[in-house]
Design a protein around this nucleic acid. Structure first.
Length: 263
DNA sequence: ACATTGACCTGAGAGC
DNA sequence: TGCTCTCAGGTCAATG
C-alpha cells in the first residue's frame, strides 16, 4: 500500500495529530527494520522531544525533532500510523509506540517488518545516501527533467517508473495506473517511446498521484475511470469494458488492459 | 544496463 | 475449526 500518495496521507495525518507536543517515552520492538539504528538510540533521540514538522520524499516520511535531527519512517509493503488516546488500544503489528505527555499515543504499524525506522541529521543527506531520485511530485520535476531522467533507458517503462533512484515515490500499483491512464503497455521499452507518449506519461504521473492524494489514497474513492479498483481476477477495463489482464514485470504482478494499452 | 530470482519477515485469506 | 498453501502495494543483493 504505502506508495507516494499513501505516505502523503500519513504525513497529513501526522501533521494533524502528533506534532507540537512533548514525547514522554517510546517503545520499540526489536527487529531488522531498525537497520543501523538501535532501539535505544531512537528512544534516546525521541524522549522529551517535540515533533516540529514533517517532510516527505518518495515513500519516506520525515519528522523533525527539537534538536534538529529527523526521525525517518518507511512503511515497506504494509503499514501506517495510528494516533489514539486509550492505553492498550494499540493496533495489531505496532512496532513503535510513542507516548505523549498529553496521554495520547502514536503507533507506527508495520505488519511484515519490511519498513524502516531510522534517524538522520539531515533530510537531504539521507536522500543522497539512499540515492533516491527526485520526488515524483516535486515541482522541479517538469517535463523536460522527466524526459531527461528517462533518456536512453532501455528498461521497460514500468520498471523505470518504479526505479526509486530515477524518480522516488511510484510503486507497483500506481505505476500500473499511470500507464493505464497514459495508454501505454507496461513492457514497452523506454527508448521506444516517442516524445508525445513520454509527455502523456509525465502528465498522467502528476495527475494520478495528485488525484490519489485528493482521494486520500483510498481505492474506492478513486475516479471510476481508474483501473486500480479492477486489479483482481475478472476486473473490467473502465474504458473498453474488456477484461483486465495480468502479467509479470520485473517480478511484480501487473494489471493492464490489452486493448487500451498497446505497445 | 537491465531482467530475474530469492531473501528479508509476517500474516491474511483461500482451499481443503 | 484448523491446517497448509499462496500471495502481498518494497527494497536489496547476487547472478546472467
Amino acid at each position: 500500500m504505502p506508495e507516494l500518495p499513501d505516505v502523503e496521507i500519513f504525513k497529513q495525518y501526522l501533521d494533524a495529530t502528533g506534532l507540537h507536543q512533548k514525547i514522554e517515552d517510546v517503545c520499540i520492538e526489536r527487529g531488522q527494520y531498525l537497520q543501523d539504528a538501535s532501539s535505544n538510540q531512537i528512544q534516546t533521540a525521541l524522549q522529551g522531544q517535540v515533533l516540529q514538522q514533517t517532510h516527505r520524499h518518495g515513500k519516506y516520511l520525515f519528522a523533525e525533532l527539537d534538536h534538529g535531527h529527523w526521525l525517518v519512517l518507511h512503511f515497506g509493503m504494509t503499514g501506517g500510523l495510528s494516533y489514539y488516546k486509550v492505553d492498550g488500544d494499540e493496533p495489531d503489528h505496532t512496532r513503535m509506540l510513542i507516548r505523549y505527555q498529553n496521554g495520547y499515543h502514536l503507533a507506527y504499524i508495520s505488519q511484515r517488518k519490511l519498513g524502516e525506522i531510522a534517524l538522520t541529521a539531515d533530510v537531504e543527506t539521507f536522500v543522497e545516501e539512499r540515492e533516491l531520485g527526485i520526488d515524483a511530485l516535486d515541482p522541479k520535476l517538469d517535463q523536460a527533467a522527466f524526459v531527461d531522467i528517462l533518456a536512453d533507458s532501455r528498461a521497460m517503462i514500468k520498471s523505470a517508473l518504479m526505479d526509486q533512484q530515477r524518480i522516488a515515490g511510484i510503486g507497483n500499483v500506481y505505476a500500473d495506473e499511470i500507464l493505464y491512464q497514459a495508454r501505454v503497455h507496461p513492457k514497452t521499452k523506454v527508448n521506444e517511446l516517442d516524445r508525445d507518449t513520454l509527455s502523456r506519461i509525465y502528465q498522467q504521473m502528476k495527475a494520478v498521484l495528485q488525484t490519489a492524494i485528493e482521494c486520500r489514497a483510498e481505492p474506492d474513492q478513486l475516479p471510476d475511470t481508474y483501473i486500480i479498483p479492477q486489479r483482481h481476477e475478472g476486473g473490467i477495463c473502465p474504458t473498453c469494458e474488456g477484461e483486465v489482464q495480468q502479467l509479470e514485470v520485473s517480478g511484480r504482478t501487473t494489471y493492464y488492459c490489452p486493448t487500451c494499452q498497446t505497445r
